[in-house]
Nucleic acid binder design. Structure first.
Lengths: 140, 140
DNA sequence: ATAATTGCAAATTTTTTGCAGGTTC
DNA sequence: GAACCTGCAAAAAATTTGCAATTAT
């Protein structure tokens, strides 16, 4: 369980209860859309407004506390900023799972960028398909 | 220049002038957001409504004529469905450029999916950074 | 103390929908 | 001719904003 107060302060943001709650929800869910964040935040802080969720997602992404994960055909999800990784995205249930991004992909994409004189700052590798759980459900 | 009438019919869609115009715009721009599509479509078909753009993007994505390219911090763009490739996305100007997705990435991501019993259906590899053009502008 | 943040309500922006008239096959 | 498609206007959904009151440092 992360010390969110420290994370926020180190990014120049005040450690409000609202932000801590939002971050705790995202950490618990791993990846969450605005709706999912709001819904879950209400459980422990019923007066937190949707506008506050929006404002904070914007500022925390700006400050690098959160990362947006845009997804084909769905609303973006947000995750805590962490080491680089890739995503398995289930097109059935919408779940997002992290996997290690290995050296093969890093090196290869770096070369591709270099060959195009492109100053690479970040990568997003999303694999779309059906997760084990949904595949089993479909088989029954 | 693609024969869009054939493409549409082969996907069970009627070849209307509106759809042809939308597809022509997307082909010309390579990648375009709803706004960019609408804006450009008006040049040759000033009465085409925004609602029609929306409806057609939805159905053409559903039918596999178009592909959505979701982008961090911006609105999604759409491209013609074509062979698999990756994207260089400029965080300055928003331009999107295609590059070949080589066998290294394909094989590696397939292995990652297999190891997680994930039924891989599609990949999205987006490299974020600054394009050559914007880098030169910044240097001056 | 002060500068940032919240919550509310209102405004804006984005996307979807219903339906009458028009078009494609 | 039948089914599909368009455009309009209206509705719904998503996001942003202004501001007075509150809170963190």
């Amino acid at each position: 369980m992360t010390n969110f107060a420290e994370v926020l302060k180190s990014h120049g943001l005040k450690a409000t209860f609202q932000r801590m709650t939002i971050l705790a929800v995202i950490e618990e869910l791993g990846h969450a859309s605005i709706d999912e964040i709001y819904e879950n935040v209400l459980k422990t802080h019923p007066t937190l407004s949707l506008a506050t969720v929006y404002k904070n997602i914007v500022t925390m992404v700006e400050q690098g506390v959160l990362v947006e994960v845009p997804i084909s055909g769905r609303k973006s999800k947000y995750e805590l900023k962490k080491h680089e990784h890739l995503h398995l995205i289930c097109t059935e249930c919408g779940s997002v799972t992290d996997r290690q991004m290995d050296e093969i992909i890093s090196a290869d994409t770096e070369k591709i960028a270099r060959d195009s004189a492109f100053r690479l700052h970040g990568r997003q590798v999303n694999l779309y398909g059906v997760c084990e759980h949904c595949a089993q459900k479909a088989a029954s």
